[in-house]
Nucleic acid binder design. Sequence first.
DNA 1: CTCCTTCTGTTGACAGTGTCCACTTTGAGG
DNA 2: CCTCAAAGTGGACACTGTCAACAGAAGGAG
Lengths: 209, 209
Amino acid sequence: MPTRPADRYHHGDLRNALIETGLEMARTGGPDAVVLRAVSRSAGVSHNAAYRHFADHEDLLAAVSARCLDRLGALMRERAQAERHEDPVERAWARLGAIGRAYVDFARAEPGWFRTAFRPAAVPAPNARGRSADDLAADHPFAQLAACLDDLVAVGALSAERRPDAEYAAWSAVHGLSVLLVEGPLAELADSRALDITETVLTVVSRGL
Amino acid sequence: MPTRPADRYHHGDLRNALIETGLEMARTGGPDAVVLRAVSRSAGVSHNAAYRHFADHEDLLAAVSARCLDRLGALMRERAQAERHEDPVERAWARLGAIGRAYVDFARAEPGWFRTAFRPAAVPAPNARGRSADDLAADHPFAQLAACLDDLVAVGALSAERRPDAEYAAWSAVHGLSVLLVEGPLAELADSRALDITETVLTVVSRGL
DNA sequence: CTCCTTCTGTTGACAGTGTCCACTTTGAGG
DNA sequence: CCTCAAAGTGGACACTGTCAACAGAAGGAG
């Protein structure tokens, strides 16, 4: 059994184990809780082992952050797929609303992960691992939003001349609301109030597109 | 001369000196650059002197953060006052746009201060200094936005039933855009592109209100 | 003027962090 | 079976926030 957990040397899949532990830390404490030494300790490994799998503390954090983004994207996709309407126009609008709600819901339900997903990268890191700015996986929140808007145009619900940059408007509103609710001045709002405001924001954006 | 700067003891106004130094640090490096020891050092004082004026590192950071917020508020007020139109409706809309642009401009021009202003407070701190959630100074960005929207209603440009929670929609959009531009995935956009997108966001919000 | 109290600032310590270095152990391939 | 690169360890360093004990400065009471 080559990957027995109690083995001191050659853990087997330490890289993933560290990311997983980092995710636990981030969940309750946000990005600042992903402390290299603490993660190593909690993974049952010495404080320097991480350097065989990550260049940096920043590198580890980036990996954890990417996982958080994946989770957000997965929730959005799930919620979008759940919207099944006959009318294509109705469905397109419903899906736009669904991914917006998913975004805010994720932020409220998992604030630590949300903050970690969008933590300010220490330094842009000239393509440390090949991830350029625009090679966005199809499940990336921004890509899903763009696809939704394209769908609205294809279905005739949104005029083509209003399409350009619409994703920035929608994303800004939803992201801004999430940030304000999670770590900003709106953090202490009651849940019901937050839900009301979310609907207002979504309505304003839909109407304004 | 009781407040000679070279005096080691009884600096005179160390509290403000530390905040000012903290502002310099925050300007280039954001909230993480406001390091207690470094600030004290740079202010020419020993690393523990700050504890006579601030309870915590967090307390110092909060003071610096408040100053950053003040600066943002001041720029918004300035820009709003510069909009002088005869027609009250036109003026109300122009001022709404002006404070929105000021918000984003501040974020782009002084990213460090912007991030410091809205840095996630470590812990809500049960009214450490009496600043409750809703005792907002009249110059607070959110208060200015609310006043702008009230004006739109008073002037007849916005129906009263759309007024409730409108400030959250507007704030979310502008704040979200700023965050994405400053420390998010949109950070590397060219200036001209950022300006275009800003106008789009403002247009969408105005239309949707 | 002197003494004493109260601020204010200093020095020294401690635990915890990220990172570098030299070392040891492991498992796979010749 | 031996070698050797990969993977993990332990120790060190500089740096951080914070605590405790100390020292100088300022101002009022006697």
